[in-house]
Amino acid sequence: MKRQVSYQWRLRETMAAHGMFAATDLAPLLAERGITLSSVQVWRLVTQTPERLSLPVLAALCDIFGCTPDRLIATKAENAPARRTATDPDEVTELAPIRPKRARIQPEK
């Protein structure tokens, strides 16, 4: 059985719990830890779910908020639903009645 894995980025919730409500509040704290990001990169980090995240940035965020990565990233794994297949003969539709008949062209007399 296949497993479906997803995650939720919870940086904004963690910031709010520490009284930070703007992305600009985070930039100087990251800079203190040697992480230099542009204001746009910090804004994206706060407002969007990152596809890729460097470990130094994750370590800096954990240090800023005094937490572990599981506080910032909530993971979820569940069994994927089985795909339906048309192996049951009762579910297969008979195709012969709905196929058109081939046209026959006869030469003119």
Results as ranks from 00 to 15, higher is better:
Gln4Asn: 07
Tyr7His: 14
Tyr7Val: 01
Tyr7Phe: 14
Arg10Ser: 05
Leu11Tyr: 04
Arg12Ala: 06
Arg12Glu: 00
Glu13Cys: 06
Thr14Asn: 02
Thr14Ala: 12
Thr14Ser: 07
Met15Ala: 07
Met15Val: 07
Ala17Arg: 13
Gly19Phe: 09
Met20Trp: 12
Ala23Ser: 15
Leu26His: 05
Pro28Tyr: 02
Leu29Ser: 03
Leu29Met: 11
Leu30Ile: 00
Leu30Pro: 02
Leu30Lys: 02
Ala31Ser: 10
Arg33Pro: 06
Gly34Asn: 07
Ile35Met: 11
Thr36Ala: 13
Ser39Arg: 11
Val40Trp: 01
Gln41Thr: 04
Trp43Pro: 00
Arg44Ser: 13
Arg44His: 15
Leu45Glu: 09
Leu45Ser: 07
Gln48Lys: 15
Pro50Ala: 15
Arg52Gln: 12
Ser54Lys: 14
Leu55Met: 15
Leu55Val: 15
Leu55His: 14
Val57Cys: 13
Ala59Phe: 09
Cys62His: 06
Cys62Pro: 00
Cys62Ser: 06
Asp63Ser: 13
Ile64Met: 06
Ile64Thr: 08
Phe65Ser: 03
Gly66Asp: 07
Cys67Gly: 04
Cys67Met: 11
Thr68His: 15
Thr68Lys: 15
Thr68Ile: 12
Pro69Met: 14
Pro69Trp: 15
Pro69Asn: 13
Pro69Val: 14
Arg71Glu: 05
Leu72Ala: 08
Ile73Phe: 14
Ala80Gly: 09
Ala80Pro: 15
Ala82Lys: 06
Thr87Phe: 05
Thr87Glu: 04
Pro89His: 05
Pro89Lys: 05
Val92Thr: 06
Thr93Asp: 00
Glu94Tyr: 07
Leu95Gly: 01
Ile98Leu: 11
